[in-house]
Design a protein around this nucleic acid. Structure first.
Lengths: 337, 337
DNA sequence: TTGAAAGCGCTAACAG
DNA sequence: CTGTTAGCGCTTTCAA
């Protein structure tokens, strides 16, 4: 049967209060008593019942992870490092894929709250930020991942999306391209990447064509679809390069381009974002902006746990530098004639 | 503040026992009373505290998912459908990546047990099956995913790996290949696929070369490494086709082959397994054996929940048919001369 | 048909 | 320094 605090109390010849104290490392007590209790715990292979202590308002030792879609390699790679770090620190993680649905966001937050998770890692751009504001107001541990959103006053770890957008776009420019389109996501990070894209235009003195800026959600089919859309416009010159705000989209573009008979990178240069496993499997390999996924995953867990321990938000804003990884989908612009 | 069963009871003018009964749909009671209570619950936006009822031995409404590695696209795609189905049925899922470590397997099982998950979905081939046998003996809900292992007397949903192995190998044979190597995993499913591989040799009257059978764990680098190993053997004729037991391995083979200057499929035919997103992003597209991931994910959750409700294992063995998806990495064998 | 009361396993005053 | 005791929010006999 289950071994409870009573069993170890009896075995150690002390009261349950004493046992509780050694479990939680609170209060003072003779060192010999503490030892005695510890021995009893070991011998009985005792593990405190999480439910019971959670009932008393203690921790559940579980974290909630909200991402748009765990099957997107970026998030599954991130989830893996988060899971590992959480486990290292004695916590489990419950995963929730929110898609871009306000309904799911709300539902999962409520669900996780009822399950009394100790804290939230949110990697989704919420449709309705009020849900998050509410948590924040109630001082519930919450950190944002890949979402450097100033309107949320909490800790966040992300890559510098502005720089990422700037570098991707600039690299295309440096390769001589002058007509660069961007396929962005419906995510906060994409807003920043678009600003970086704009800034690069500014820096290079190139006029922006608003028609070159499109938005969709992350998937290969969407990448393809928006490539088609971009390339079927008849009233503007076609772009010679594309910056896709994630690898999935970039691959969709590659596929669309191939179908149209374009050769990459000769006829079209493409840069992705994230540097997921997908970027290494295409041919040619995908030039992309890397995010330090492992570092970020580890860090976000550490920050969250620190805040849980501290009982308040540290409001740290941790920004990593994105890194351009040049592979095969980019080249100098084709000189005409 | 939190609204408890007491608040509802007071508001409805009944005792907490009555409220408890309507929550759990147990006992008899005047319909008007039940209604009254329900109204009160609605008005107060009452949700039963999971911890408290779990303390009483009730469900926690959470499932444990064990897979080798959630960042492997096969498992992340699977996890997504599992998560969705679980949420549809009111349950959350805690994820655990076991790698191929006996230590982690044991640790996570114990962890999840302490968290009182209602059931386990295990998609990892356990190093030490005793850990699972133990759960089974204790009648703890547990189902196996992609592991049709006869030595475990529980429900399982998987693809027919034997047929998958047979079909992959046969397809190579049908294309005129006679020297087909197999790169398998350290997983139970791979055992069966190897049997299918053997059976195909039998059927085609082709002798098996044991040197053509190698095993490793799922990753692109390993695929590459074992391709190298296979192709640096000097005492046997080199294979003209390879069956890799998952897409990751297959991609490693593609990369290794390219580095050796082999053209695919002209110089080497390759078939993968799983039909993950990766199979669609390579060039040429990867010919692979598809597993019906969504069906399987949904089914495994349904079976598990059914068993949780029933309080015992149904010992169902659900086998899906694998399907050969022909893309670009396979071709007729090169006629020499 | 309903409710009082005894826990589930643990924490946290408060006494001693 | 250690133990008694009153809950945390809920379920479940057992009476009424």
């Amino acid at each position: 049967m289950k071994v409870t605090i009573y069993d170890v109390a009896k075995k150690a010849g002390v009261s349950i209060a004493t046992v509780s104290k050694v479990i939680n490392n609170t209060g003072n007590m003779r060192e010999s008593t503490r030892k005695k209790v510890k021995v009893a715990m070991k011998e009985l292979n005792y593990h405190p019942n999480v439910m019971a202590s959670a009932l008393m308002g203690k921790r559940t030792e579980t974290l909630g992870l909200l991402v748009p879609d765990i099957s997107n390699p970026f998030f599954s790679e991130m989830a893996r490092t988060i899971e590992d770090r959480a486990h290292e620190r004695g916590m489990s993680v419950i995963m929730c894929s929110t898609d871009e649905s306000a309904e799911k966001e709300k539902k999962y937050i409520e669900l996780l709250q009822r399950k009394q998770v100790d804290g939230f890692i949110v990697g989704s751009t919420f449709q309705d930020k009020a849900v998050l504001q509410d948590l924040i107001k109630n001082n519930i541990p919450l950190v944002m991942l890949t979402q450097d959103d100033a309107s949320l006053d909490v800790s966040k770890v992300s890559v510098d999306d502005f720089i990422g957008g700037y570098e991707a776009t600039s690299y295309h420019f440096a390769n001589g391209h002058r007509r660069v389109a961007i396929i962005a996501e419906n995510a906060h990070s994409s807003n920043l990447r678009i600003y970086g894209y704009r800034e690069a235009h500014e820096a290079y003195g190139i006029a922006i064509k608003e028609e070159y800026i499109v938005r969709t959600s992350a998937s290969i089919p969407n990448g393809k679809k928006f490539f088609e859309q971009l390339f079927s416009q008849t009233d503007i010159a076609l772009p010679t390069a594309i910056f896709a705000c994630n690898d999935l989209l970039a691959i969709g573009v590659i596929q669309g381009a191939k179908e149209r008979g374009l050769e990459i990178p000769r006829d079209l240069s493409i840069i992705g974002f994230d540097n997921t496993i997908l970027a290494t499997t295409t041919v040619p390999g995908l030039t992309t902006i890397a995010q330090p996924i492992s570092l970020m995953g580890k860090k976000i867990v550490d920050v969250l746990i620190e805040e849980i321990n501290a009982g308040q938000s540290l409001k740290e804003r941790i920004l990593y530098n994105p890194e351009l990884i040049v592979r095969g989908t980019t080249a100098m612009v084709k000189t005409i004639g």
